[in-house]
């Protein structure tokens, strides 16, 4: 049996799942999935069928950055370009 982690434990851990990322950021699952598939959010996956693990702090900063750029009126290709330049 594997239990859901409490918010306290999630906030103390280095890596989180996409479900936990949804709980932390309040973003929709489809939005985060889209960002991941567009290569905007880095993740680790040990094998193809295993859960994707996102570095918690780095990913939350990136999500905030993407949301801010979107609010400023930037398109997704523009945001991707900006994020790529930073890396």
């Amino acid at each position: 049996m594997s239990r859901q982690r409490s918010m306290e434990k999630i906030l103390a851990s280095e890596f989180v799942s996409i479900g936990e990322l949804v709980r932390l950021s309040g973003c929709r699952y489809s939005t985060l999935k889209f960002y991941t598939e567009e290569g905007m959010l880095p993740f680790k996956q040990e094998q193809e069928n295993l859960t994707r693990r996102f570095p918690r702090e780095e990913t939350l900063v990136k999500i905030k950055e993407i949301q801010d750029l979107k609010k400023q009126g930037h398109s997704i290709p523009e945001i991707k370009e900006r994020l790529a330049k930073k890396m």
Binding site: S2, S17, Y29
Partner: peptide, 16 residues
């Protein structure tokens, strides 16, 4: 949304 994420993603699901 977190339930959707856990269900539609690959990997094990929590009991909850």
């Amino acid at each position: 949304e977190s339930l959707r994420a856990e269900t539609l993603e690959t990997g094990p699901m929590t009991d909850e």
